[in-house]
């Protein structure tokens, strides 16, 4: 075969493959964006007339707003706790020589997926029950924070490692106390990393269904991810109007947060000082 034709064909094939892939991922998004505005939503993504009735129904639903608020409390609380604790731990692990430090980190990272995984739900439930933290949001925040911390420490340690020690030494020679070195120099320099980890933690918690579903009993304390699961009509049919509209509203805060943080810091998954 002519090499030019072959190049052409392989290129056409590549683009067709890429297009199919895009369509595969874009269709659900299209459904997410279009369905809330259709009068009679189904599984199909079609725009047959535009209406805002679905949003009215959503506003009238008594569970919707409290659940979004609960989601914000759980995700915000966990993200803040994760960033604060991970930053301190990452700083310590980066600067203090601990024998077997890297092994410890890797072990924690591997085990962390278990903490918030299905297998650990029964022991976690029992533990929180003993602690009196069942059906309390603080319990959920603690469990989720515990599950996210190792990965967060791992990511942030990379940022701290890239902060030259001379920054801290310079501050020390000028008389800064350890907490001042941390507040004035280290934390501001790793702020992009903290922002990245914060958004990451928030998204993880925002989309988590299992942990709040198991650990919270009272429906008024459930976050949006769990409440969405209850949107079925009496006949067991999913209420597409409510689900699709809620899904759109539910995704807005995360997208907004992403845009704001990206604008401010730019996302970085690795430490590095721009020259």
């Amino acid at each position: 075969m002519n090499p030019v034709v072959r190049t052409l064909l392989s290129r056409v094939g590549g683009y067709v493959g890429a297009c199919l892939l895009v369509v595969f991922f874009a269709l659900p998004l299209l459904w997410l964006v279009l369905t809330p505005f259709t009068p009679n939503p189904t599984y199909r993504a079609s725009l047959s007339g535009v209406t805002l009735d679905n949003f009215r129904a959503l506003v009238d639903n008594p569970q919707v707003w409290p659940s979004i608020r609960n989601s914000l409390v759980l995700a915000g609380g966990s993200a803040l706790l994760v960033v604060a604790l991970a930053a301190l731990a990452a700083y310590a692990l980066s600067r203090v020589r601990v024998p077997g430090r890297d092994q410890l980190l890797y072990a924690l990272l591997l085990l962390s997926s278990i903490v918030t995984g299905t297998a650990a739900m029964v022991p976690l439930f029992l533990m929180l029950f003993q602690l009196g933290l069942i059906d309390r949001q603080v319990g959920v925040v603690l469990v989720l924070t515990g599950g996210l911390l190792p990965a967060a420490v791992f990511m942030l340690k990379d940022f701290v490692d890239s902060v030259p020690r001379s920054y801290e030494e310079s501050a020390r020679v000028f008389g800064a106390k350890p907490n001042q070195v941390l507040r004035h120099v280290v934390l501001p320099v790793i702020r992009p990393g903290m922002a990245t980890v914060g958004v990451w933690a928030l998204v993880q918690v925002w989309g988590n269904f299992l942990v709040p579903y198991v650990l919270l009993a009272n429906p008024s304390k459930q976050p949006a991810a769990v409440v969405m699961y209850t949107f079925y009509d009496a006949g067991g049919q999913p209420d597409f109007a409510l689900i699709s509209t809620f899904a759109l509203v539910y995704s807005v805060p995360v997208v907004l947060l992403y845009l704001v943080v990206n604008r401010r810091y730019g996302f970085a998954f690795q430490g590095g000082i721009k020259g």
Partner: peptide
Amino acid sequence: LEPGERDVAMVFQDYALFPH
């Protein structure tokens, strides 16, 4: 004494200016 109590000022090889 701690570095900050010695009344010295140091200029580092990489200057150690705080980027933020």
